[in-house]
Write a protein that binds this DNA or RNA. Sequence first.
DNA 1: TAAATAGTGTCTATCAGACAGTATTAT
DNA 2: ATAATACTGTCTGATAGACACTATTTA
Lengths: 250, 250
Amino acid sequence: MLCVTVDNYLTDEDRSFLASYDPRAFPPVAVTVDLVILTVRDGELCVLLIRRGEPPQRGRWALPGGFVGPDETLDEAAARELAEETGLRAGAHLEQLATFGDPGRDPRMRVVSVAYLALVPDLPMPIAGTDAAEARYRPIADIESGAVLAFDHGRILAEGVERARAKLEYTGLATTFLDEPFTVADLRRVYETVWGVPLHPANFRRKVLSTPGFVEPTGEKLATGRGWAELYRRGTTAHLHPAIPRPPAG
Amino acid sequence: MLCVTVDNYLTDEDRSFLASYDPRAFPPVAVTVDLVILTVRDGELCVLLIRRGEPPQRGRWALPGGFVGPDETLDEAAARELAEETGLRAGAHLEQLATFGDPGRDPRMRVVSVAYLALVPDLPMPIAGTDAAEARYRPIADIESGAVLAFDHGRILAEGVERARAKLEYTGLATTFLDEPFTVADLRRVYETVWGVPLHPANFRRKVLSTPGFVEPTGEKLATGRGWAELYRRGTTAHLHPAIPRPPAG
DNA sequence: TAAATAGTGTCTATCAGACAGTATTAT
DNA sequence: ATAATACTGTCTGATAGACACTATTTA
């Protein structure tokens, strides 16, 4: 294997050691990335699921994912999978979530899966890949109330949803769920949908607009709906000071 | 490979598919766990490092770690490594940090490393393993100011330290750095050491004691030092309400 | 007119941060 | 006596949460 990245760190001793090193002496392990792609549509928090078109567990709903290529970083593999499934290349938020590697979580072999979390705006339609019979955004509520996902994907999804809920509190990531421009009420509905609690409109507005860098006014106003509403774009601040406090129970 | 865990999920189709499945068709990848073991000693935040006794990068300081066994979960492998290096079996905090898998991060082969973060009290002495010439707790400040670690361990350490700093704010984990019983001043010194900022003793005391479940009084008093100080044990609450706010810069 | 929504202003309880001050012990 | 530390009490400014109120548009 060619490893130019750290080649300049190698000593002569390293080089002679590597010449006699056999990577195939280790038990076979596969490394994959699985994606928790969340979006908000029609007042519901939804996740992109694919129905498996190949065994094992053909016909069952699963998170999209795939093998990490030999020359890819983990982040690159996740970005490639996200683009393949949604068509999105930029504008979405993508971060590593956690890694799942219990023996027996996949019946084929030892599979260590690095899970990623993506937050995307409401998109036209997902793209069904070669190994997927069908791809669809499905409400979280449906999965939480019974529907069983393939492998340990239910647990991965639960961690992704919890991470997303927590991150809305102290980052400006809620705006990545929205197309620009948006109103303060649109942003509030994102929080209400993801957290599952109603928020006080007046207090929410005051907090959002008093947090520097959260949203930028476009100066335009939207006349649709009742009355009129000012329009905003995403701000530049990743970390919110102060945070948007999450109500205790939900 | 025997995979009983999800065996009852297998359909007849799955079983016939698996009979013709060859795990060795994939490029060889090794999965390891690396540990960021942090402690507070002599007013400094320290990390357990080993000096590599085998190539590659023999003689360079690195995080302790090792291969994940074929029948181990990732958490089990991390707990085993922690016990091997420190002798600790319980009482320490251990959580998954992030996964690092850039091609070329290890010159031997493609190595995907699942990093774990451990917070431990001040311990007698670390144990040098078979592949380590030496094991020592070294101050974070020494590494941040120049000392280069093996592979990408500098980046892993930086993420671990940042996670630890963030977690002190909203969890009761600071107490895992201390032997019981401890005083409020001991706990304050942990925060001051990890965050690198002085905290107001009076305000710190008020916040800690008004946060239910953070610390439990033993009823005893310690007469050493000037005056006397009340002694406490770790509380049961993992999540702090309200949080211990971290001062902005520093 | 009634209902729904965008936006403004105000009141109150709480908390962070700063500081004054007391009690106790080592030097 | 002086310095250092543990601990208590008080004051101020900021903010979360609740509510009242106006303006505007649709049904």
